[in-house]
Design a protein around this nucleic acid. Structure first.
Length: 102
DNA sequence: AGTGTGACTTGGG
DNA sequence: ACCCAAGCCACAC
């Protein structure tokens, strides 16, 4: 496992309940400004194995990145369950729920 | 080795 | 605020 991967995993696991982070934020804190897509890879392939709170990760606009499907539905459900308000279009208020960086 | 793809991001209109 | 185009990086075929 590469250092970057491990850092990404640690960062995602550090997101508190009721908050979200963006792919770019995670990549940047893990040491790769252009690593958002790696974060996607890691999340996509290791979220189950490492018990990551993948539902607390959204894109730069605050939207749920997954297309329509089971995953998208579950992410909305989990976030609502933690007190995060999710728009009908799958958007959250980053100004209110973003963790890290401000 | 070349081409296509994606749970992304940023800059311009 | 919304849509479009370019940039980026690793993986699959």
């Amino acid at each position: 496992m590469q250092p970057f991967t491990k850092r990404v995993i640690d960062i995602i696991r550090s997101i508190p309940e009721g908050y979200v982070m963006t792919y770019g934020q995670i990549a940047e804190q893990a040491g790769s400004r252009r690593g958002a897509r790696q974060v996607v890879r890691i999340l996509h392939s290791m979220s189950e194995a490492h018990k990551l709170p993948w539902h607390r990760v959204v894109n730069a606009k605050g939207e749920i990145a997954i297309k329509d499907g089971e995953g998208r539905f579950m992410q909305t459900l989990y976030l609502n369950g933690e007190g995060v308000e999710v728009d009908r279009d799958g958007r959250v208020d980053l100004a209110a729920y973003r963790y890290g960086g401000g």
